[in-house]
């Protein structure tokens, strides 16, 4: 099983302004959401995991090995990161070539790269568009291309930065399916997001960042039951949880289905 251990990690761009102040955490096979306001240090954190930034203090162990001795290109074989804006990476005239860029960079041969890329495109539902120009597609499809181009690298860890921005209902459902599939394949999935209903639906573990520190960390429903800490980080729980709170339930539900079956069972008991 893949494990990432982060020990006493500090980071800052300038001396006056520390961005991360002593992060200690172990990431494991659980699908994990990272939430918190902009400026809380979420994106900096994942850039450190990718080796794009290096910690000032502390270390990051990937399966027990310190990533300080690995180059960004070496880390790329193990950890994939999908950036927020697909326009920051797309440069080829056809989608298949774009998706194959990463796999070839990390040393796959042409055939293997093609096989992985086609699988990845099938997973995001763009198999029929292999030969199209990425810029003939809408922003939401370009986001899926960017996702495929990282999935094709077949890394043990996949990190998403705000995958649901610019997606409609169907797009979000598609991304949820991708995350569940990755999880079933035994990959570690981390996601930075602002969409709490998406977190509630899709992630076993939730980490709350606030002001460069980890404010909460645990099973998603446990985290969303901590009303005070959440409001301290200016976060609102998912809509279903808000309803539970305002009805004065002690039990916290995250999903529509769970809430419905709870109310139904209660109704039946009382009949």
């Amino acid at each position: 099983m893949t494990r990432i251990e982060v020990q006493e990690m500090h980071f800052s761009y300038t001396e006056q302004e520390p961005i991360l102040k002593g992060i200690n955490i172990t990431l494991d096979e659980r699908s994990t959401a990272i939430i918190g306001q902009n400026g809380a240090g979420k994106t900096t954190f994942v850039k450190l995991l990718k080796g794009l930034l290096r910690p000032m203090q502390g270390k990051i162990l990937f399966d027990g090995k310190d990533i300080a001795c690995m180059t960004v290109a070496q880390i790329a074989k193990h950890i994939g990161l999908v950036f927020q804006n697909p326009n920051d990476q797309i440069f080829k005239n056809n989608i298949l070539d774009e998706v194959m860029f990463g796999p070839i960079n990390i040393g796959m041969d042409e055939q293997e790269a093609k096989r992985h890329s086609q699988n990845a495109l099938a997973m995001v539902g763009l198999s029929d568009c292999e030969d199209k120009n990425p810029y003939d597609m809408g922003l939401s499809e370009r986001k899926l291309i960017a996702i495929a181009s990282v999935l094709a690298m077949d890394t043990d860890v996949v990190i998403f930065d705000e995958p649901t921005i610019a997606q409609d209902y169907r797009g979000i459902e598609k991304i949820k399916k991708i995350i569940r599939t990755l999880k079933a394949e035994g990959k570690m999935v981390l996601t930075i997001t602002h969409d709490m209903d998406f977190v509630a639906d899709c992630f076993e573990r939730t980490i709350v960042f606030a002001k460069g520190k980890i404010l909460l960390d645990g099973q998603t429903d446990k985290v969303f039951s901590k009303k005070e800490e959440l409001s301290q980080a200016y976060l609102e729980p998912p809509h279903v949880t808000q309803l539970c709170n305002s009805l004065g339930y002690d039990k916290v539900f995250l999903r529509v289905e769970d809430f419905v079956s709870y109310v139904k069972s209660k109704g039946i008991e009382n009949k």
Partner: peptide, 11 residues
């Protein structure tokens, strides 16, 4: 950002 994105893809 673009440099980061492409380095992330092993470039």
């Amino acid at each position: 950002t673009i440099t980061d994105a492409q380095r992330s893809r092993g470039m």
